[in-house]
Amino acid sequence: MDVLSWVPDGVDVTVPNVARAYDYYLGGYHNFAADREFVARVEVAMPGFSYAAQANRAFLGRAVRWLVDAGVRQFLDIGSGIPTLGNVHEVARQSAPDARVVYVDIDPVAVAHGRMILADDPYATSIEADLRRPAEILGHPEVLQLLDFSQPTAVLLMAVLHFVPDSDDPAGIIARLRDGLAPGSYLAISHVTASTHRREIEQVRRLYQHTLTPGLPRAPRQVKKLLAGLDLVKPGLTRVDDWLPDSMRATRHPQAEVMLGAVGRTR
């Protein structure tokens, strides 16, 4: 950013923002008119896209519960979005009240909101950082203050990797994160794919082109490659609503096929 660019990135509410749009997909109220109009256009491009977002959010909840059951008490949620329905620290603390969570997002508004909500929470915070600079995240003073990387930690990269183009070396980023974690840690990801709904996703991609964080779908094979060096827990990489579904399954909307999810364990 140039010293003279007085309108800081991400703080212009007249431009749709993916964090706030995502909140609206989930039925939240943390959004502005521009975000809602954006979602309306996405829904025209791909009717029911919101179901994919909702399925993703539900996967996040199940994954966190699974991780807590696996003994994880530290979470680094990168690309966490606006604190909205079913936040990681809430879900985790349902069964592990001592869980610690650091939220990371590139969107200053999402982070500011997170910090306000978490102001009185000594074991959770929110910081502004860029996934594309993992060293800055792992070395961030607030991260180091809350998380002990000698203990198992779960890094969540939910619905954020598709905002990182190949030119930014997402595999390298994941490797850097992975290598910063103790053995027995986890990396959980979800990712947009276009194995089905190819045309619709292409349209959606074009719409995201106009946000500060353009995205791109990846083929399941490419997503798998990103997870090299991790042992995927069962059932491996699946569409998110097929990943260890609750005994009472939510409605399986076809649009949710565009979201893939997996949880991997570090060696």
């Binding site: 010293v3 007085w6 800081p8 991400g10 703080v11 509410v13 706030r20 939240g28 109220y29 943390h30 959004n31 502005f32 606006i82 200053p108 508004v109 999402a110 982070v111 500011a112 909101h113 910090r115 306000m116 909500i117």
Partner: peptide, 21 residues
């Protein structure tokens, strides 16, 4: 509350950015 929260967050983000700038 949500609307107020996000508005405050937006203002806070602005303020932080301006301080930083």
């Amino acid at each position: 509350t949500a609307a107020e929260g996000i508005n405050n967050a937006e203002r806070a983000a602005w303020r932080d950015k301006q301080y930083a700038l």
